[in-house]
């Protein structure tokens, strides 16, 4: 079981991370996208998931990564991000719900560049409970 008292908590903002042209083209090629220069719609997951590492690694939170399945994913793009941009990520524990002994954890990560909020990324993880 996750520590439900973490709901609503904001994690530390990451240091600026560069969206490198190299990482963008590798990601685009892995999906077979013909345009290897534009930032692919799902690329931001490569920045937002590592931003949640402090939560995933926090023993007080109790998340066992081997019991996690990715349940839901949502992106809201407020402005176009281009290769070369530097962004920070601020994850927020939006909700923790327990359904039939399993947990549903939703994180919302704000992705910002020098001009402010550029995108929001929601990730919902299903965390299997201990067998009864």
């Amino acid at each position: 079981m996750l520590n439900a008292s973490y709901a609503g908590r904001t994690l530390p903002t990451t240091g600026p991370v560069a969206i490198t042209a190299e990482s963008v083209s590798r990601f685009a090629r892995a999906l077979g996208l013909s345009d290897a220069a534009s930032v692919p719609p799902t690329y931001l997951i490569t920045l937002t998931l590592p931003a949640a590492d402090p939560l995933i690694d926090d023993p007080e939170f109790g998340l066992d990564w081997s019991k996690v399945l990715h349940r839901e994913q949502r992106f809201a793009y407020h402005r176009e991000l281009r290769a070369g941009a530097e962004v920070t990520c601020t994850p927020v524990v939006e909700s923790i719900k327990t359904v039939a002994g399993n947990d549903l954890l939703t994180l919302r990560t704000e992705v910002a560049d020098a001009d402010g909020l550029a995108a929001e990324v929601w990730t919902t993880l299903f965390v299997a409970g201990d067998p009864q």
Partner: peptide
């Protein structure tokens, strides 16, 4: 990866159709 393929299908269609539009929201439940 699956969601990435879905995004590819959307982008390829938009490019082929000559749509002058951007993706504002994108979501999936696995």
């Amino acid at each position: 990866y699956t969601m990435g393929l879905i995004s590819r299908a959307v982008l390829e269609w938009a490019a082929e159709a000559g749509l002058d539009a951007s993706l504002g929201e994108f979501s999936a439940r696995f």
